[in-house]
Amino acid sequence: MSDTNTSRLPLYIAATSLIVLLVLAGLSTFVYIQTQSELSDLRERMTELQSRIELIDGSGSNGIRDQKVYALTEKSVVQILNKQTGLDGLEPTASGSGFIYDKKGNIITNYHVIEEAETIEVTFLDGETVKAVLIGADPYSDLAVLKVETSQEKLKQVTLGNSSELSVGDTIYAVGAPFGLSWSLTKGVVSQIGRTLPTSGGYSVVGVIQVDAAINPGNSGGPLLNSLAEVVGVNTAIQSETGMFSGVGFAISSVLIQKVVPSLIEKGRYDHSWVGIAGSDVTPSIAEKMDLTESRGFLVISVVEDSPAERAGIRSGNKTEVVDGRNMTLGGDVITHIDNKTVRKLEDLLAYLEYQTEPGDKIILRTIRDGQILDIEVTLGVRPPPQTE
Rank of each mutant, 00 (worst) to 15 (best):
T119M: 14
P198G: 02
H112E: 03
V205L: 14
I209M: 08
G180C: 09
G127V: 06
S184G: 10
I107A: 03
E128C: 00
L143K: 00
P178Q: 12
L146E: 05
L181K: 06
V122F: 07
K154L: 15
T129Y: 00
G136N: 02
G194Y: 12
Y203M: 09
V189Q: 06
V122M: 05
I209Q: 09
T150V: 13
A132P: 01
V113L: 01
W183C: 03
L134I: 15
L134Q: 12
G194H: 11
L134A: 08
V122G: 05
S163V: 01
L143C: 02
L125I: 12
P198Y: 06
Y203L: 13
D142H: 08
A174H: 07
T123K: 12
I193K: 13
D142T: 06
E121N: 08
T196D: 12
S164P: 01
I172W: 04
V208H: 08
L197I: 09
L125M: 13
T109M: 06
Y203S: 13
R195H: 10
L160K: 09
G188D: 00
L125R: 15
T196F: 07
I193N: 05
L134H: 03
G194P: 08
V175H: 11
G202W: 08
E128R: 13
L155F: 07
S167I: 03
I135W: 06
E128D: 12
L146H: 06
G127W: 05
D126M: 08
P178R: 11
A174I: 10
S182K: 15
T196V: 14
P198H: 02
I108Y: 08
Y203C: 02
D170S: 04
A132M: 05
Y111K: 07
E118A: 02
V175R: 09
